[in-house]
Design a protein around this nucleic acid. Sequence first.
DNA 1: GTCTATATTCAGATAGAC
DNA 2: GTCTATCTGAATATAGAC
Lengths: 208, 208
Amino acid sequence: MTATISTEDVIVDAARRVFMQKGFAAARMCDIAQTAGINQALLHYYFRSKDKLFSIVFEKESINFRSDVLQILNSDLPFFQKLRLMIRKDLEKFRSAPFLPMFVLNEMHNNPERMMHIASTSQHDLIFKKFSTLVEQEYKAGNIRKVCPAQLLLSIMGITMFPYLAEPMIKMSMGLNGEAFEKLMEEREEHAISFIEQALLVDQSVAV
Amino acid sequence: MTATISTEDVIVDAARRVFMQKGFAAARMCDIAQTAGINQALLHYYFRSKDKLFSIVFEKESINFRSDVLQILNSDLPFFQKLRLMIRKDLEKFRSAPFLPMFVLNEMHNNPERMMHIASTSQHDLIFKKFSTLVEQEYKAGNIRKVCPAQLLLSIMGITMFPYLAEPMIKMSMGLNGEAFEKLMEEREEHAISFIEQALLVDQSVAV
DNA sequence: GTCTATATTCAGATAGAC
DNA sequence: GTCTATCTGAATATAGAC
């Protein structure tokens, strides 16, 4: 039983690609049909409307976007290990899906209503709560400098996500082609981890 | 001679607001007309097409977006002062125009051709070059840790811009209303500066 | 299920009166 | 310069044959 791919899946995959690249408003149903190698009427046969099709894609991707960070935070690894792991996991994900951050953030920006629906299934609030607790603990244990957990989380996310959000601008201003940019992103993990650790460490000691 | 605002300016301002919030594809000419308090035909009388109107708005905003960082970098302030000033200036700008980062980055993502046009007038490449030189110098002088200038610049930009790029998600996951978010952004400057400085400082000394 | 052909809707653009 | 009314084209959606 060779798992032949159903037409439905072909469509969703094509839709994913087109929506990710263009966003909802600029995406065209005929592009999606063409990408899927079928015609436009079939899109409507499977998914009643552009809105419905988009919802399916967006929901999937926003689940993919909400990282597996929560498990890492809930594990019993030491704090700096957790930090490293969450940075590594996120960077890996974005490397394999560079459009994901821009897609999700942009659609949230454009369409707050849709976001509300996502809110229920997302775990971002749990991640923030758990992260805050851990940071407070580490501070009290004297392992890291005093820092506002919310600010720290924003900085970490900015450091990992920003390069993908700004990819075209970065390539332009740094004079990079696709290959050079990818190389920079390969090297990013090391930079990000040591940068953040350094910013957090208390002056004298070096926790490992 | 009271400087009565010309219809043209009213339109451009309305267009700016609508385009910034919705992006090119989702923005509607009738929304812009309504926002401007005139009718749609007049838009076309002043600016031939949606494309033309958008170009004008985008060009203005992308110039605004390219910070006055270059002057700061070219000044004769000490390195860490430059760093602080450039962070402060950028955060100030984004606080007064929170949609700016998403608008510019998103349109660059969607429409690389338009970006090419901007490339010529933008100074981002100069900023990167100058910044790199300064970082190298500081490292050689023993004032900062060894760090790849490109990576560092990405981290700084991520730290300052990301909160505005992800504003809706952040509000949601941290449970903030508009006011609380603004407060967080007020406090961001202090966090950002000390975070980045700490990450850069060599272990023993503290340069000022 | 898949297609071609067609209807509908909507947004950008124009004509022409004032 | 500004308006109302209208055209045109494009994009979504449907009808109906196979």
